[in-house]
Simulated assay, not measured.
Amino acid sequence: MRVLIAPDEFAGTLSAVQAAEAIAEGWRRQAPDDVLDLAPMADGGPGFVEVLHRALGGHLHVVTVRGPGGASVPATLLLVERGGVRAAYVESAQACGRHLLDATDPELASSYGVGELLLYAWDAGATEVVVGLGGSGISDGGAGLLAALGAQADVALDQGVRGLAGVTEVDLTPARERLRGLTLHAALDVDIPLTGLFGTLKAAGEQRGIAEERLPALDGHLEAWANAVDRRLSLDKGAGAAGGLGYALMLLGATQEPGIDLVAGAVRLAERCRRADLVLTGEGAFDFSSRSGKVPYGVADVAAHALRPCVALAGQVLVGAREMRVLGIESAYAVVDLVGEEAAFADPAGSLAQLAQRVARTWSR
């Protein structure tokens, strides 16, 4: 039996590569004769560069950028030569991810470091840059990114969403000129607008540490930012991705693509699904939000087109059987249901391997 293993990261515990290896280890214990094909996945968030490096090869360059709170943080630039084009892949979460907030006031968290990543890519000779969006700890509408490229305004653009209060005048000309000739692509994990009921703060402000009662006022700051720059564009799908980094990249002329689609193409997911008898996917928390550009839904969709069953292994499963079917998942299994929450966090790889061994009893021939 051929089994394709294509999980996302298990946020805070396992990278996608580690998760795939843990699932494979557990599966082999139960079904050693099965042929396993490991295809770690990402949706633009944490792990995006690692997964693409595994799939595409290329050269990794470690650089230092400004983190969301101002301290220097390491980030990785992936350079890939293809058909005479030098493409760079960067991951916004490495410069301003939620895991970097620590004691930083989330209202002051800045995306400045993502702009620095673009400059590094440009200086390295890249002619196009793909920016993975997801796992963001900022909500500044991409103002920090644009400030790093030279944008000017009547407020400080590198002081987070709170710093945008009262903004009325913005000059993006220096930022656009700085990267003239560079082709930009945004790999999105969500397709929400910048502001409003379905905007970035409403969707993920509290996950980034912003108090619920502060969300309306800060959304007003983003409204002011949008009015000062390009109101129409702020309403487009994807503008609210990664705290508004999608909006900043759109202002620079970036095209958009779901991150899961980009990664699926890079790892030849459709072709590998057709060769498999069963497809396994997974993530830390499998819930109905997985339908919005997330890895399990994307993998299940590709598996469905290949007429292959797809099963999910997750840290937690927060949907019922009906919701699973809507997401294209035949069955979903939770680590915490098998070993308990404490054990799951104490030994995430071992616990996931245990779960995979248990699932193989049901699904392996």
Rank of each mutant, 00 (worst) to 15 (best):
P309I: 06
L218V: 13
G350A: 12
G196Y: 07
G196E: 07
H53C: 04
R232Q: 13
L188N: 04
L38Y: 06
C310E: 01
I192L: 15
G26W: 08
V51C: 05
A321H: 14
G265P: 03
E206V: 13
Y112S: 03
L164V: 06
Q30Y: 06
A300K: 11
G220R: 12
A264P: 00
F288M: 00
C96I: 00
S110F: 10
A306P: 15
L100H: 13
V63C: 01
M250Q: 14
D154W: 03
A334G: 07
L194D: 08
A321Q: 15
V3Y: 11
L197Q: 12
F198A: 14
E50C: 07
E283M: 06
E21N: 05
V85I: 13
A126Q: 06
F10H: 06
I5K: 03
M1L: 08
D219N: 13
T183K: 14
L172Q: 10
R231I: 03
D261F: 04
A124V: 04
R66G: 09
G132A: 08
A224L: 09
W27I: 15
A203N: 13
L278P: 08
N227A: 14
V190F: 06
L14K: 09
A148K: 02
G240N: 14
L251K: 00
G57D: 08
D158V: 01
V263R: 04
D158P: 09
T281H: 02
A88H: 01
S139R: 02
A55W: 11
V299A: 05
V63E: 09
T200I: 13
T104F: 04
S110K: 13
V63Q: 10
H61V: 11
G137Y: 00
G244C: 09
E206K: 02
I5Q: 03
C310Y: 05
G160R: 05
R208Y: 05
P193F: 12
V335E: 05
E212S: 15
G84R: 10
M250I: 03
A228E: 00
V131L: 03
G240E: 05
F198D: 12
A344L: 09
R214A: 15
D287M: 05
V336I: 15
D158Y: 06
C310V: 14
S111M: 02
V17E: 14
G47M: 08
E212A: 14
G67H: 02
R214M: 04
E107P: 00
L101Y: 10
V35A: 15
D154E: 13
G220K: 12
A264M: 11
E330L: 10
D277H: 15
G150R: 08
